[in-house]
């Protein structure tokens, strides 16, 4: 199986489909095998993009296509409204690619989604791919290979690098989830690890963390208490200076909090092998899988 995206043929819409990114990635998702049933751009209803029908509202799209999930490419000032529109229209999985959504909006969106029983993935992330099932987001189609590894990451391109390394080593992935680089994200690293533990097809878990916040430390605690599958971690930002925001809104060491050292130590104390470079990850995975 997989996590979060588990249903082959899951009907997906793309919000902001007429934009440059939205139209390109809608086609890429289709090429991956995702059932992209429509797109939404207010005012562009009735048109189509690469054979995908465009609707004025999520409500219209759901009514016409039975969409159950949405991928949001809408620019930051309008993205929160797009997410609320999706939730109000009954969409239960909203993957937010948009970067630079203020965290004030995310704290509220997250509470609202919880209230309405919807799951958010992102923002400021590459989305989620369940290999052999569907891709909701912008990860390159070529890096995946079916296999037993679940990957959760706070990064985009570093995830591609690592997934590619895992695939090339002859292993492969169940689900790869990019939770996003922001301070407040819809689905957390902690939740993803718990779901991978429950997922039968996932035999080992890779956690890609980075400086800032305490998600890695909290994940280590969960691994210690609730996870018996092998876990390999990688932490980016070992040489990042304190007080500087390293690209991601969430990647900042404040005071003495959020350092790579603290995260590495927490993982090691939880019995997690921490790779010092991406190419070491498949090596450690093989070691761990062989000893299970």
């Amino acid at each position: 199986m997989a996590i979060i995206v588990t249903e082959k043929g899951l009907p997906v819409i793309v919000q902001g489909i007429t934009g440059h990114q939205g139209s390109f990635h809608a086609s890429q998702m289709k090429a991956f095998g995702t059932n992209v049933v429509g797109g939404v751009t207010p005012g562009k209803g009735g048109t189509s993009i690469n054979g995908i029908p465009v609707f004025d509202s999520v409500k219209d799209a759901v009514k016409e296509t039975g969409a159950k999930a949405s991928v949001v490419f809408v620019p930051a000032p309008y993205a929160p409204d797009a997410v609320i529109e999706a939730i109000d229209s009954g969409i239960k999985l909203v993957v937010i690619i948009t970067e630079h959504i203020p965290f004030h909006d995310m704290t509220k969106l997250k509470l609202y989604a919880k209230l309405m029983g919807a799951r958010l993935v992102g923002p400021n992330g590459p989305g989620i791919t369940s290999v052999g099932i569907a891709k909701l987001g912008i990860m390159p189609n070529s890096i995946f290979k079916p296999g037993p590894i679940g990957v959760v990451s706070r990064s985009g391109t570093l995830t591609y690098e690592i997934v590619n390394t895992i695939s090339e080593a002859g292993l492969g992935e169940t689900t790869v989830i990019g939770i996003g680089g922001d301070q407040v994200v819809g689905t957390t690293m902690q939740e993803a690890v718990k779901m991978f533990q429950q997922d039968e097809a996932t035999k080992a878990i890779v956690v890609v963390g980075e400086i800032g916040g305490t998600a890695e430390e909290e994940t280590a605690e969960i691994i210690k208490n609730e996870v018996n599958k092998p876990v390999v971690a990688f932490i980016a930002g070992r040489y990042a200076p304190p007080g500087k925001r390293m690209g991601h809104a969430g990647a900042i060491i404040t005071g003495n909090k959020g350092t790579a050292q603290s995260k590495i130590q927490a993982f090691q104390e939880a019995g997690v092998m921490v790779a010092s470079k991406p190419s070491e990850i498949p090596v450690l995975l093989r070691q761990k899988l062989a000893s299970v």
């Binding site: 990064s155 980016a236 990042a240 690209g247």
Partner: peptide, 29 residues
Amino acid sequence: LAFVKLEGDIGIIANGAGLNMATIDLIAQ
């Protein structure tokens, strides 16, 4: 553009924040 000055002499350009940090780490290591 997201740019942070460090103290060294090897210039780095990478795409994505995570890959950037990882690249810096690999060079420094």
